[in-house]
């Protein structure tokens, strides 16, 4: 008896075979716009989290670059007619693994993000690695490149993310995995 894959993360992961996943290398998402422009409350909540006193954020109109990845996330609930199923492109890669953990990110900044930027996001699946067994499980590393642009088409930043999509094989592991 086969069991339908279950998305234990609740993030909308797609499931498929390793071969189906490998075929996603090179695919690019449709452009999507963040739900709303960068606003001051987002900036100040984030600065509170890391205790960042930078006056450019508290007294100016700039946004910490670390907040850029947030702009790709969808609300946890929306009215049905506003629902969007486009949170993270890397999660759309169909693969067998039920778990994910982030391995690394590289962010390159063209300019400081600002309050009022209404960011558009395009994601490309750069590569899907062959299957590897690590300390925490067996799976693949998905490398994706996300480009953040403002409402005028100017690129603000590019972020390369490496995500490990895996099945647990060693429950004694205590750490995130290195890419």
């Amino acid at each position: 008896m086969s069991t339908a894959p279950t998305d234990v993360t609740g993030l909308g992961m797609a499931f498929g075979t390793l071969e189906e996943g490998l075929a996603w290398a090179g695919r690019t998402s449709e452009p999507k716009q963040a739900w709303f422009p960068i606003d001051r409350s987002m900036v100040l909540y984030y600065c509170s989290l890391v205790e960042d006193a930078n006056p450019r954020y508290w007294e100016g109109d700039e946004c910490p670059p670390g907040l850029l990845m947030t702009l790709g996330f969808n609300p946890q609930w929306t009215p049905e007619h506003l629902h969007r199923d486009d949170s993270l492109f890397a999660l759309n890669v169909p693969l067998p693994g039920h778990h994910i953990i982030n391995a690394s990110t590289t962010t390159e900044l063209e300019r400081r993000p600002r309050v009022g930027d209404h960011v558009s996001i395009i994601e490309e699946i750069v590569s899907v690695s062959p299957e590897k067994t690590t300390r925490i499980g067996t799976g693949v590393f998905i490398t994706s490149l996300t480009t953040y642009s403002d409402q005028h088409g100017e690129v603000i930043a590019r972020n390369t993310n490496v995500l490990f999509r895996y099945e647990i094989t060693d429950t004694s592991a205590e750490t995130e995995e290195e890419a």
């Binding site: 953990i101 391995a103 990110t105 590289t106 962010t107 290195e178």
Partner: peptide
Amino acid sequence: LRRRKISMIRS
């Protein structure tokens, strides 16, 4: 900030 790379090896 022009570039930042991070790798997570321990939580």
